[in-house]
Amino acid sequence: MIITFQNVSRYYNEWPALENINIQVQEGEFLVVSGPSGAGKTTLFRHIWMGDLPSSGAVEVVGFRSDRIRRSDLALLRRKLGIVFQDFRLLSDRTVYDNVALPLQVAGTSPKAVRRRVFSLLAEMELNHRRGSYPHELSGGEQQRVAIARAMVAHPVILLADEPTGNLDPEVSRRVIDLLIEINSSGTAVVLATHDPRQVPAGTARFLYLDRGHLVNPSSWDGYEQL
């Protein structure tokens, strides 16, 4: 297992953001975590990259346990993860190339290896012609592809995508989901948070539903019928 949640609960001022969550994710799996706004999807993601730690229970991600992790281990854990956000989080004062190269640069990769990897990845994602552009010069779809390229550049074991299509039109959203499926088919585990699980074709992923911090049976989720 590359991700394990064992009876994880997280409370903010006694308010339960997550309650008694048990999840296991295997290597190379595609997991879709769905649920309405405020269901706890983002909190769950924060626990995976250990930007937040459980109030009780434990999370284990690629061998790092939340109850034993040291501050210095966080960087090592996060180098094994790629993270994509709804609002892209690209650095506006850096070019596409520099944004994508960042995870390699902070890991101490040699400039030659950085160049080789970034060029090949940008070519793969059809962004090579945009490598000198700044984020504000790109369309929303291009920005999200750059964000995915940044998440993938260091060959992560797990790609976490938190509502990656939230700011995109349906056509661009479909292409982003296709890209995630393609990434998953090459062996990288993908965990996708979305409020609209219909974006992901049935049979390509395992689906989990969160509602008010609890994992629920899809049929008992209020919003399921409207999907």
Partner: peptide, 16 residues
């Protein structure tokens, strides 16, 4: 702030 956050998220060591 965003640069600092992103660096931390992509695995930059604290001293970096």
């Amino acid at each position: 702030a965003l640069t600092v956050q992103i660096m931390s998220i992509v695995g930059a060591p604290g001293w970096f």
